[in-house]
């Protein structure tokens, strides 16, 4: 992975709403096959950053380059061939079935009739087998458990066949088993399929153990750190320690302080 390419370049980027930036300018890169976690407290701008990088929201200042092209000059279709997105938004529709939902990932490649070619079908079946969603295909999406829903949305993103997959808090509402499974699956997709995975999360200990890099929202600054760096535990302690919990660098967990 040492000779990896740069997929996305952030150049003095600021994200936010109504021209109000949520943080100082941030420059970084996303390389092929990297697994990056965005962590930070609630309301610091994790989701906004993710949506901006995915091109569905404009940056307040700075630039994003997708393979050296300024994202501002790219059409939504071109971006959709490079970046797939999994959000926390719930799906209300009571009829949409799992297979049809996954097949929607091929939108950007199909004709107006959404006719699925052999290539489309192969990509869909690949996505289904990676995410192990084969048994769910005929079910109505809204009837699935939260963990299953997440896997199906991931399959849709995989079917989109992009070099990058961004996920907004993909392990919300999941029990510990599903959280672990999701993180491991995402890590595997980065390692084996050379996808660049960028996700926002509150699971600091998972991020510390599995991520290649962490983008950490620290009081108006975004820090670009690696879990194994010496000073990383101190930075995390500084942000997340409170009167009642303390970060334990050995286990990457938070310990309750006894009174």
């Amino acid at each position: 992975m040492n000779n990896s390419q740069t997929n996305i370049t952030l150049d003095k980027l600021q994200v936010g709403y109504n021209m109000q930036a949520l943080h100082e300018a941030f420059s970084s890169k996303v390389n092929t096959g990297e697994f990056i976690c965005i962590i930070g407290k609630n309301g610091t701008g994790k989701s906004t950053l993710l949506r901006t990088l995915a091109g569905i929201q404009k940056p307040v200042s700075g630039q994003i380059f997708l393979n050296e092209t300024d994202m501002g000059h790219l059409s939504l279709k071109k971006i959709a061939r490079r970046i797939a997105l999994v959000l926390t938004e719930s799906l209300q529709d009571p009829y949409i079935r799992v297979f049809d939902l996954i097949a929607l990932g091929r939108q950007v490649y199909t004709d107006w009739k959404h006719h699925l070619s052999e290539v489309d079908k192969n990509m869909i079946h690949h996505a289904i087998s990676v995410t192990q969603t084969g048994e769910l295909l005929n079910k109505e999406f809204y009837k699935l458990s939260d963990g299953q829903k997440q896997r199906v949305q991931l399959a849709r993103a995989l079917a989109q066949d992009t070099a990058n997959i961004f996920l907004d808090e993909p392990t919300n509402h999941l029990d510990i088993q599903y959280k672990m499974d999701t993180f491991l699956l995402l890590q595997k997709m980065a390692r084996q399929n050379q996808k660049s995975i960028l996700l926002s999360t509150h699971e600091i200990s998972f991020a510390m153990q599995l991520a290649d890099r962490i983008w950490l929202f620290d009081e108006g600054n975004i820090r670009d750190i690696k879990p194994q760096d010496k000073e990383t535990p101190q930075i995390i302690e500084k942000i997340f320690n409170t009167e009642s919990i303390r970060f334990n660098p050995k286990t990457s967990t938070f310990d309750f302080l006894k009174k």
């Binding site: 059409s75 938004e89 799906l91 929607l104 939108q107 950007v108």
Partner: peptide, 23 residues
């Protein structure tokens, strides 16, 4: 008729539709 495909994407919500290339 040419937009029926996009309407299916819109079922997932506007942000998802955008991320799948629908203007």
């Amino acid at each position: 008729i040419p937009f029926l495909k996009n309407l299916n994407a819109l079922l997932l919500g506007e942000n998802y539709a955008r991320s799948m290339g629908v203007s």
